[in-house]
Design a protein around this nucleic acid. Structure first.
Length: 423
RNA sequence: GGAGAGGUGGCCGAGCUGGCUUAAGGCAUCCGCCUGCUAAGCGGUUGUGGGGGCUAAAACUCCCACCGAGGGUUCGAAUCCCUCCCUCUCCGCCA
């Protein structure tokens, strides 16, 4: 959510942001409604002021045993008018709030201009993918051969897009989660274990709602949502709180499964682990002082890439252009690894700065010093790292001609000393 | 799920037979005074959101709203009525 006063004062900036993100929004209608509401507020408050004054007079008169019926009669119409105005304000304010939730965050000035992912910029590369001296198998074939993935069982249990990991596949998942959480603890994140269903307010707070409702699994009976990422519970941990400025940055990490309906992507990436409805991910969230949040974004990005480097997995970092930025983000880096058999770069992490956009929605503040005014924090988050695509990369890049898969050295101790996945 | 108790300002806690409460009192906070220093004592200060005025912007100032949330009764609601939410205690069910 953007600052209402800022929108009023500097609509040009908002308009430019909308244009950069390629979002259609009738800002003029919004501003008109806003003006209408404020004029109603002015009128209503004037009448309330009168009401308050006269009420005291009535009390005085009654106390003195005098008659106040004339004033009372007159105030009846004033009260009715107040009620009328309040109703109008409420109506217009609800509509205004709904609209305000649909205004996207403004991209940071440093973000490259562009209208689609075509114009994203590669900012960094690490390591090199060695070309395999044989025709690589796609990860789902390797996995089925090794008996570590059971796609059929997944669809029997839950339908297409759900998978079952078996044996060393399950162990590999567990190992990766433990490894990543250990890395992030070292980096100074507090590890949390969070609920996987959250309230509507949480989803609005981190800006998944209202825009992405169709993409979310919704439990109607309780109006709860399955989380699409641990970002939601982690960021909402501090919803409605005023944090101690001296304690910032506050950093959390957690593992969670992530649930996404992937509405509108039917037919894409249907095979293997690339796009599934429930996947595992370790997430990092950072509550930062506004003036250093872009430094924190770089730190967060490095905290994510460190996981890949320790696993000896080459990657590249993409800076998203304005048109490819998500609704709430001001700036965002994607981290991608390459899978040779599917011949695709796979997004395994996304690290974003939301500035105060989520903080306003979720009302997360901080105070620099006692007695000072509270300000909104900046929130950032990044995956560190999403598992299925990482597993796909490991399987496809580390496969051997004999059908085995080499386990990254850093993971061996987490795999009970095992150095290879083999049938 | 059932029964009971309760939700008041940063915290504790009165008010709850509707109008001298524009929320008492205490603690804490910050400022000042006072004592070699500290403690104690004395005086003052202290929230959030919104609208307007003055500003380059603030400071400042005026006003409105906020006693869990939402509705209702009334000229007037923390106080009366209804609905919902949450917390605590007990019971039931359950890994």
């Amino acid at each position: 959510m953007l600052d209402r006063k800022m929108i009023r004062k500097d609509p040009g900036r908002v308009r430019e942001g909308l244009k950069k993100k390629g979002v259609n929004f009738d800002l003029d209608a919004f501003l008109e409604m806003d003006e209408e509401m404020r004029s109603l507020i002015r009128e209503g408050e004037q009448l309330k002021h009168e009401k308050n004054k006269v009420s005291q007079d009535v009390a005085k008169l009654k106390k003195e045993g005098k008659d106040a019926s004339e004033i009372i009669e007159r105030m009846k119409t004033v009260s009715d008018r107040i009620k009328e105005i309040d109703e109008q304000i409420k109506d217009i304010s609800t509509r205004l709030d709904e609209l305000a939730l649909k205004i996207p965050n403004i991209p940071h000035d440093s973000v490259p201009l562009g209208t689609s992912s075509e114009e994203n910029v590669v900012v960094r590369k690490w390591g090199e993918f060695k070309e395999l001296p044989f025709e690589p198998l796609p990860h789902w074939e390797i996995a089925e051969k090794l008996g570590i993935l059971d796609l059929a069982a997944g669809s029997t249990l839950s339908g297409r897009g759900f998978v079952v990991y078996r044996n060393d596949g399950a162990l590999l998942t567990r190992a990766l989660i433990n490894f990543m959480l250990d890395v992030h603890r070292e980096q100074g994140y507090e590890e949390l274990w969070v609920p996987y269903v959250v309230t509507r307010d949480c989803m609005i707070g981190t800006a998944q709602l209202p825009k992405l409702e169709d993409d979310m699994y919704h439990i109607e009976k309780d109006d709860l949502f399955l989380i699409p990422t641990a970002e939601v519970p982690l960021t909402n941990m501090n919803r409605g709180k005023v944090l101690d400025g001296e304690a910032l940055p506050v950093k959390y990490t957690a593992f969670s499964p992530c649930f996404r309906r992937e509405a509108g992507s039917y037919g894409q990436d249907t095979k293997g682990l690339i796009r599934i409805h429930q996947f595992n991910k370790v997430e990092m969230v950072d509550f930062s002082l506004p003036e250093v949040s872009y430094d924190e974004l770089e730190t967060l990005l490095n905290d994510a890439t460190e996981v890949l480097e320790r696993l000896e997995i080459p990657y590249r970092v993409i800076e998203l252009c304005t048109g490819d930025l998500s609704f709430g983000a001001s700036k965002c880096y994607d981290i991608e690894t390459y899978a040779p058999a599917v011949d695709k770069w796979l997004e395994v992490s996304s690290c974003s700065n939301f500035e105060d956009f989520q903080a306003r929605r979720a009302n997360i503040r901080f105070r620099r010093k006692k007695g000072e005014k509270s300000e909104f924090v900046h929130t950032l988050n990044g995956s560190g790292i999403a598992l299925p695509r990482l597993i796909a990369t490991i399987l496809e890049n580390n496969q051997t001609p004999t059908g085995k898969v080499r386990i990254p050295r850093a993971l061996v101790s987490y795999m009970g000393g095992k150095e290879y996945l083999e049938a």
